[in-house]
């Protein structure tokens, strides 16, 4: 599943249920056919993995309750109001009645905090990042999102944006770990400073719209440039390694 497809699932999902093993079930209702498609969000390293070896993630992630319930990972169609029995030896049912999902596992709290949601999103992809990177991201999320009582509320954080950041860091795993911030619209931004008065910032916007801004106040004349991530010049990309 490409990062964009994963975002599409998140954005298209009418309902989203989180289970206590940090996995998520997205229910996308199709009013035209009266059926719902339950999409199981899992972590393939590429779309080819799922096609060639649909059970691969079981080995990667261990025994999964939702996997037992839903069967093969992507795109199974379940008629609304009917009961579908999972394939395999597990005798478990998933029922979708009037768009309400129920299963043997109960959804977690329906309105978790931004911190809770983001930490869960991070833990959904444990094998994509090094343990050092995960620990750093957890520390950063805690500081950014763990608001104290009475504190002015910051922006809610966008999970698709966090997925974009995680995917970017996992695809470029030799980069220095960035500083993190959250824009006023809730999108994650990663920054690298090669020296004191220079900084590259990548903003993980909606729909895979990622942009960079580079500033170097000590250049003559000062540098202040920006553009889409796909067009990031090498001279600025190198700042991410320092």
């Amino acid at each position: 599943m490409s990062p964009l497809a994963r975002d599409d699932v998140l954005l298209a999902a009418k309902r989203q249920f989180s289970y206590d093993d940090c996995e998520q079930l997205f229910v996308i209702e199709d009013t035209g056919t009266g059926s719902s498609r339950a999409t199981y969000l899992i972590d393939f390293s590429s779309s080819a993995d799922s096609a060639s070896d649909p059970s691969r993630y079981i080995r990667a992630f261990g025994h999964s309750l939702i996997q037992d319930l839903i069967g093969s990972p992507i795109g199974r169609t379940i008629p609304v109001g009917q009961t579908w029995t999972a394939l395999g030896a597990i005798n478990a049912n998933v029922a979708l009645a009037s768009g309400t999902g129920s299963a043997n596992a109960q959804p977690l709290d329906s309105d978790p905090s931004s911190l809770h949601r983001c930490l869960r999103a991070l833990r959904m992809r444990p094998n994509r990042l090094t343990s050092t990177r995960i620990a750093a991201l957890e520390r950063q999320l805690e500081t950014l999102l763990n608001e104290e009582e009475g504190e002015v509320e910051g922006p809610g954080a966008s999970e698709p944006s966090l997925y974009g950041l995680i995917d970017f860091l996992s695809e470029h795993n030799t980069l220095a770990h960035p500083s993190l911030s959250i824009t006023r619209n809730g999108y994650f931004a990663a920054s690298w400073s090669p020296r004191k008065r220079a900084k590259l910032t990548i903003m993980f916007g909606p729909g895979g719209n990622y942009e960079w801004i580079a500033i170097d106040l000590d250049a003559t004349p000062p540098v202040h440039d920006k553009g889409p991530l796909a067009n990031l010049p090498d001279k600025f990309a190198n700042w991410m390694h320092t």
Binding site: A136, R139, Q140, E142, T143, L144, E147, E151, V152, G154, P155, H177, P178, S179, L180, S181, I182, T183, R184, A189, S191, S193, K199
Partner: peptide, 20 residues
């Protein structure tokens, strides 16, 4: 600088500010 104004470094401490 409040929490929402800050960039956070890998150690979990503020490392810079953002435009806000």
């Amino acid at each position: 600088c409040q929490r929402s104004d800050l960039e956070i470094g890998e150690d979990g401490n503020p490392s810079g500010v953002k435009i806000d």
